[in-house]
Amino acid sequence: MAEKNQYSVGQLSKLSGVSVRTLHLYDEKNLLKAKRGSNGYRFYNSYDAALLQQILIYRQMDMRLDKISAIINSENFDLLSALQTQRQLLIQRREDTNKMIERIEATMKMAKGEENLDVILKGLPQAKVDEWKAQLKQGENGEEFYEAYGKVSSDEIHDIKQDADEWTENYMKVTHLSVSDENVQALAKQAYIMINNMHFKTVDDFKGATYKFLKIVNQEGKKDKVVVDIYETYQKGMAKHYFDAMDYFAENSLKDNEAEYIHLK
């Protein structure tokens, strides 16, 4: 049985994930020489285990065995220094890999966000949809917009689409009414709930659409050519009527009743 800090060939194989056959090859190539105990069995010590890790790192770098042998058998070879250097390289590689993973995940969310946007805009003229998507991508917050939409599941986005289509159909029937009309304001409340719900799904740590938040959303919406064009594509004059109705809702319903509204989903 191996003593403390000593490993049989089988133990080192299990510990390192390197096959026994490979360990025998490293022994033959003078890369990692096994020692012989008084019983004649081969064994390795802690230094050998550490040296094996260094060899494995070199192998991961696609270095040939003869070159590895020349390095580790050099009179100037310092295992501790080599391990410290490789440790720093691996840490940097891990950081670079993590950044790559983050970029890939962000790109995946953007792709998913575009798919979700296609669902929301389904039924509108494709030429318009392509134009809007191109403008969004070129916009200052385009990437953030698509990433946010990418957080919504496929099932959720279809439910959102169904609710949005039903709301739009109903709203187009009331645009001839004053924005203060109770029917218009009932739909404004529905729109607020949909806005609130969407932000809960897409914005981390979202606390609810406050009066100030809704006013900002309305102001930005009025200036956003894509948003305005979408409403106008449904019905001419709908954009102004909608934003005026939402401003009226903010001033007359939400302003002094935030606690009642901001948790509605």
Rank of each mutant, 00 (worst) to 15 (best):
N5H: 12
S13K: 14
K14I: 10
L15A: 14
V18M: 08
R21E: 12
L25H: 11
Y26H: 10
K33S: 05
R42I: 00
Y44S: 05
S46W: 13
D48A: 00
L51R: 04
Q53E: 15
I57D: 04
I57F: 08
I57V: 11
I57P: 00
Y58K: 06
R64N: 11
S74R: 00
S74T: 02
E75V: 00
Q84P: 04
Q84M: 13
T85M: 13
Q88L: 04
I91E: 08
M100N: 11
E102N: 07
E105P: 01
G113A: 05
V119D: 09
I120D: 02
I120Q: 02
A127C: 01
K128I: 02
D130G: 15
E131I: 03
A134M: 07
L136M: 09
G142K: 00
E144T: 10
F145S: 02
G150Y: 02
D155N: 12
I157Y: 01
D163E: 14
E166T: 12
W167F: 06
W167P: 00
T175Q: 06
S178L: 03
E182S: 11
A186F: 01
L187Y: 00
L187S: 01
K189V: 03
I193V: 09
M194W: 07
H199P: 00
F206L: 02
F206C: 07
G208D: 05
F213H: 12
I216N: 13
V217E: 02
D229W: 02
E232S: 13
Y234I: 08
H241E: 12
F243S: 13
M246Y: 03
Y248A: 05
E251Q: 05
N252Q: 08
S253V: 08
K255I: 00
D256M: 09
D256A: 11
N257L: 14
N257K: 13
E260V: 08
H263M: 15
